Simulated scan of single mutants.
Amino acid sequence: MLDAIAQWWDGVELWLAQLPFPFQFALVMAVLLPAALGVARLIDRVVDQAAGRFNPVPKVPPAVEPEKVDASTPS
C-alpha cells in the first residue's frame, strides 16, 4: 500500500516538474494558499483558547440604565 502511494506521488511530482513555470505556480498557489489559510486559522483558534485559559476576562456586571420616560404622557 505504501509503495503504491509513493509511486503515485512520484508520478505527480514528475508531472508537476515538467509543467511550464506559470502553471506550476498556479497549481502550487491553488493548493498551498487554502492550506496555509487553514493552518493560520487553526493556529489563531489555538492561541485564542490558550490566551483565554491563562488570562480570563473578568466578568463585568451590565451597566444600569436610567429609568426610561414614556414620551407619550404629558409632564
Rank of each mutant, 00 (worst) to 15 (best):
L14G: 12
A4H: 09
V60P: 05
T73K: 15
L27C: 11
A26C: 08
A35K: 04
A40S: 06
I43K: 15
A51P: 02
L32V: 11
V46N: 01
Q24K: 15
A30I: 08
L37Q: 01
Q24Y: 03
D3A: 07
V64G: 01
P56Q: 10
A40I: 08
P62C: 07
P34T: 09
S75N: 14
Q18L: 11
L19W: 00
L33R: 14
Q18H: 10
L33F: 14
A26Y: 11
L32P: 01
A4W: 05
F23G: 00
V28D: 03
A30L: 10
G38F: 01
L16H: 10
A50N: 01
E67M: 12
K59V: 14
P62G: 09
V57L: 06
R41T: 13
F54D: 06
A71L: 10
S75I: 08
V69L: 15
A17G: 12
V31T: 10
R53C: 03
L2N: 04
P20M: 05
D70R: 05
R41A: 09
Q49Y: 05
F23E: 12
E67N: 06
A40Q: 00
L19A: 00
E65L: 15
R45L: 14
L42A: 04
A36I: 04
G52D: 00
W9Y: 11
A35Y: 13
K68M: 09
F25N: 13
K68F: 02
D48H: 12
A4G: 06
R53P: 02
A50G: 06
P74C: 15
V47A: 15
E67D: 03
P62K: 02
Q24T: 09
Q24H: 08
V46H: 02
L27S: 04
T73P: 11
V60C: 14
L2I: 04
P20I: 06
L14A: 13
G11F: 05
F23W: 10
M29E: 11
K68G: 07
I43P: 06
V60N: 09
G38E: 05
P58M: 14
R45V: 02
A50R: 14
Q49K: 13
G11R: 03
S75G: 02
P61D: 08
V46A: 10
A6W: 03
P74W: 09
W8S: 00
N55D: 13
P20G: 05
D70Y: 13
P20K: 01
S75T: 01
A26P: 03
V12R: 15
S72C: 01
P20W: 03
L27Y: 00
V47P: 07
V28A: 12
P74Y: 03
D44P: 00
A30H: 02
W8I: 14
D10W: 04
W9F: 07
A36R: 11
A6N: 09
K68Y: 07
V60Q: 11
L42G: 01
M1Q: 06
V60G: 00
F23Q: 12
P34K: 08
F23R: 15
P61T: 04
L16K: 08
Q18C: 14
L37Y: 10
A30R: 06
A30D: 08
D3G: 06
L14T: 15
Q49L: 11
A4D: 01
K68C: 04
L27I: 12
D48M: 12
R41N: 04
A51V: 15
V31E: 06
A71T: 04
K68S: 04
